[in-house]
Amino acid sequence: MSVFSRSSLKMIDTVARLGSFTAAADVLHKVPSAISYSVRQMEQDLDVVLFRRLPRKVELTPAGEVFLTEARLMLRQMEEVKSQTRRAAHGWQKTLKLTLDNVVRLEPMQAMIEAFYSRFEHAELQLNMEVYNGSWEAISQGRADIVIGATAAIPVGGDFEVKQMGILEWAFVMAPNHPCAREQVLTEDLISRFPAICLDDTSSVLPKRHNVHYPQQRRLLLPNWHSAIECFKQGLGVGYMPRHIAQPLIEANLLVEKLLPEANPRSHCCLVWRKDENHKMIEWMVDYLGSSEQLYNDWLRS
């Protein structure tokens, strides 16, 4: 038996976890003498003592603890190699990389994830979130196979397909105790006195875009809507929020919506995916996400 075979490493792991040759023998369906002999052979090959033999149990020596740590790492790597080989045999890529733009609803994620793992036995789904041009950068740099909710015009060229998702509506909101909430008519001068709560574009190469705000208004840049909502509720600024995120907060009287003289901004959103005829998971996911109407209802509708 090789010292570094899967069965040898698994045997050492079992003995270490149970602290007994006899208990390990029961789990591994062997007799205790065979386990004891195999461990002794491994110790001779390594020229170290892995276990201290005590009257009723065995304990790892310092050398044994080091060996066990590395043995468990090798076992995990062996399992990963086996999984990757099975994925390749079934014609699937290892991972589908899916990016959600921070403006989309999150409620459809559960059903989507469950459907994916039910369909693909040996594949994995990697989910990431980006903001504004960060979504386009992810697809252009190969960090995403599919982007849900990419906004505005296409700022990059690339070998990808685009499907319209519809128009995202925005609401201009603030905390109920914010000074702007007490005013009947909001002017640019008044609003510009307070920070505009904006999500920070996650792009590092493409030009950054941010929420609509007045030219003289300072921004409070935040990484996601979760942190932005907390800042809105604490009265730290004012600004635009996607309607589907803002509406429940408005109805719960946690935020107040105000109408400005100019029309609220509207964002065209789209589904983007990388062209790859050999990547069957991309094709499956695009089909699963459905038509433009379904995309709007699932991911953008208030």
Rank of each mutant, 00 (worst) to 15 (best):
Q41C: 14
M42I: 14
D47A: 03
V49F: 09
V49L: 13
R52W: 13
R53G: 05
P55R: 05
V58W: 10
L60R: 09
L60S: 04
T61E: 15
A63T: 07
V66K: 13
V66F: 10
F67Q: 15
T69V: 15
M74P: 03
L75C: 12
E79L: 00
E80D: 11
K82L: 05
S83E: 12
S83A: 11
Q84N: 15
R86H: 06
R87T: 13
R87P: 08
W92H: 12
Q93R: 06
L96R: 04
K97C: 03
L100N: 03
N102S: 11
V104S: 10
V104Q: 10
R105P: 03
M109F: 01
Q110A: 09
A111T: 08
A111S: 09
I113G: 03
R119E: 12
F120I: 06
E121K: 08
A123L: 03
L125W: 09
N128D: 09
N128M: 04
N128F: 02
E130Q: 07
S135H: 06
S135N: 11
W136N: 11
I139M: 02
S140N: 04
S140D: 04
D145H: 06
I146V: 10
V147Y: 10
I148S: 02
G149W: 00
G149H: 06
T151W: 01
A152Q: 15
I154L: 14
